[in-house]
């Protein structure tokens, strides 16, 4: 059952007021490359509609939410006649899903790599020697202590732990 949750809607509007400008014209869904290829399984207009209605169960609690199919190509954002910032709103919703601990594994893996090393892709031995052969300098990345401290502050570490369970 879909439960209307105005708290969620108001949270989204507070974060991004442009949500309330949407008049459901379908410019976004008509222009979306993923909506076309998934035959509407992913539909940016519907996600915005659900956000307007505050359908928390469908948006946040449902596993495998279609929202993850957004390719972040930002076409909808450029096309929207009302300048609704769809991608920003989707980001907020995805952040909420993450807090809830349900994100596709690939995001967790990237998050874990950042936690471990501060970078998304650690330098392998093979790459280091390839860099040398190409005459490229050694890269000194961020001190991991600093990054760990920051990620503790933003509560990122806990959220990754929750998601990995």
């Amino acid at each position: 059952m879909s439960v209307i949750n105005f708290k969620l809607r108001n949270q989204v509007i507070k974060h991004n007021a442009s949500l309330s400008y949407c008049y459901q014209c379908s410019t976004c869904s008509g222009g979306c490359p993923v909506a076309l290829l998934t035959q509407g399984k992913y539909n940016p207009r519907k996600i915005i509609e659900m956000a307007i209605l505050g359908l928390q169960n469908k948006l946040i609690k449902e596993p495998n939410s279609s929202i993850w199919l957004c390719s972040t190509c930002q076409k909808c954002v450029e096309l929207c006649p009302q300048k609704v910032e769809l991608t920003e709103i989707f980001t907020l919703l995805k952040n909420k899903i993450f807090e809830d601990g349900k994100v596709p594994e690939a995001f967790l893996l990237q998050g874990q790599a950042i936690l471990d090393s501060g970078i998304a892709i650690p330098y392998s031995k093979a790459i280091i020697s390839r860099r040398e052969k190409l005459g490229l300098p050694e890269i000194k990345t961020a001190p991991i202590k600093e990054i760990k401290l920051l990620l503790k502050e933003t509560n990122f570490e806990n959220k990754i732990l929750k998601g990995s369970k």
């Binding site: 995001f107 998050g111 970078i119 998304a120 000194k140």
Partner: peptide
């Protein structure tokens, strides 16, 4: 010296905007 991941706008930003901004 000392840059970290930017972080990825299609990865980290999607799951944690604040972390993305901070890094």
């Amino acid at each position: 010296e000392g840059f970290s991941c930017c972080p990825d706008p299609t990865g980290i930003e999607q799951i944690d905007h604040k972390t993305w901004l901070t890094m």
